[in-house]
Each structure stands twice: as structure tokens, then as C-alpha cells.
């Protein structure tokens, strides 16, 4: 690191090394049509995705638009509760506001049939055994605790089925499928 020179009036004073700049924003979140539809069905233990009118890509969770094309998505599809880990991160350092037991695994979960992933927790799996392409399934809260909230799924656990190939995992899968269709 480069040596910083300061005016002599600061010689010998205790340097400031950290600062608190707390940022807090409080909203009333009102979901739009797509998110409302998604949340209502999520409250029935169903996971919905949107289908892109441009190329049929399945987007989960549905946002009402295909952000690549700015195209309106009004077609919903129900998704299975199984998928694979597209990529993941093992967290060993506690973060304020996140009181999970360490270490924990956050992963991009790609549901079967989905073309994008979403962030969620993976558990019932030692961190050293987590891998890209690992098959997982949803672990839901007890039925009487299910609501219209993203907290319905506690985490995703390994199914024990064979992995999907690395080359087809996560966003790589998109290109693999496109090529398959082009070759067909």
C-alpha cells in the first residue's frame, strides 16, 4: 500500500481507522402484479415462474418482465420443488442482522426447468461436500406456518441423486440447452 503524506499538523495524532455510517431505509413494500401472484401461490406451497415471450426462458421468481428484452411476461408456469446448485458461497464470518449458525452455505438454486437461479440457503450438507451441480430439494416450514412470504422455504437439502454435469449447471445450462435446440 502506498505511503500517504499528510500535513505536519497531523503528525502524532491518533489516526481514524473506522467509521460508523449506518444506513437504514424503511419501506412499505407493495408487490406488483407478478410478485403478488407469486406470493399468493407461494402461500399454497407452489412456486411460479414467468415464461419469456421472446425465447421461452423460464424466470424464477417471476418479475413480470424479461429484463433482457424489456418484454412483458404474463404467462406463469408452476415449477417443481427440486433443482441444483448453480454456484455457492460458504460464509464463516458473522454478519450483523444475520444470526445463522456458522458456517452456512448460500447458493444460487436453479429449479428444474428454470433458466435463472435465485439465492437461498443450503443445509443438511457439510460445506466441504457442497458442489456446483449438486441436486437439491426444498425444505418447507410446517404447513401451519406457511404464509405469503419468502421465508416459507427454510433451506434446500441434497437429494442424493447424481449431480448434473458441471457444464450444464447454473447459467451454463442455458447455453447447453440452446445448443441442443439449435442442433435438433
Amino acid at each position: 500500500m502506498a505511503e500517504i503524506s499528510v500535513p505536519s499538523s497531523l503528525d502524532g495524532v491518533e489516526p481514524v481507522q473506522s467509521v460508523r455510517t449506518p444506513i437504514r431505509m424503511e419501506y412499505i413494500f407493495t408487490p406488483g402484479v407478478a410478485a403478488q401472484t407469486y406470493l399468493r401461490e407461494f402461500g399454497n406451497k407452489k412456486i411460479l415462474g414467468n415464461v419469456s415471450p421472446v425465447d421461452g426462458a423460464v424466470l424464477v421468481p417471476p418479475r413480470g418482465a424479461d429484463p433482457r428484452h424489456g418484454a412483458l411476461c404474463d404467462e406463469f408456469v408452476e415449477m417443481p420443488h427440486t433443482g441444483h446448485v448453480g454456484s455457492f458461497c460458504v460464509t464463516n464470518v458473522p454478519i450483523p442482522g444475520r444470526d445463522l449458525e456458522l458456517p452456512y452455505i448460500s447458493a444460487w438454486i436453479f429449479l428444474d426447468g428454470a433458466d435463472i437461479g435465485f439465492l437461498n440457503l443450503v443445509a443438511e450438507c457439510p460445506p466441504e461436500e457442497c458442489r456446483i451441480g449438486m441436486r437439491v430439494e426444498a425444505v418447507w416450514k410446517p404447513d401451519d406456518e406457511i404464509g405469503m412470504t419468502a421465508e416459507n422455504i427454510l433451506y434446500w437439502k441434497p437429494t442424493g441423486e447424481p449431480d448434473i454435469p458441471f457444464e450444464a449447471a447454473g447459467v451454463r445450462g442455458w447455453h447447453v440447452r440452446r445448443k441442443g435446440e439449435a442442433d435438433a
Binding site: R24, M25, Y27, P31
Partner: peptide, 16 residues
Amino acid sequence: RLSAPLVLEYPFRRTT
């Protein structure tokens, strides 16, 4: 219509 409170907060000290 659904709506819910949402709080986004970064409470930590950061190094300068």
C-alpha cells in the same frame, strides 16, 4: 392487495 414492512439496514462500522 399485499403489502408488508421492509427494512434495509447496514449497521456496521467500516474501515476507512
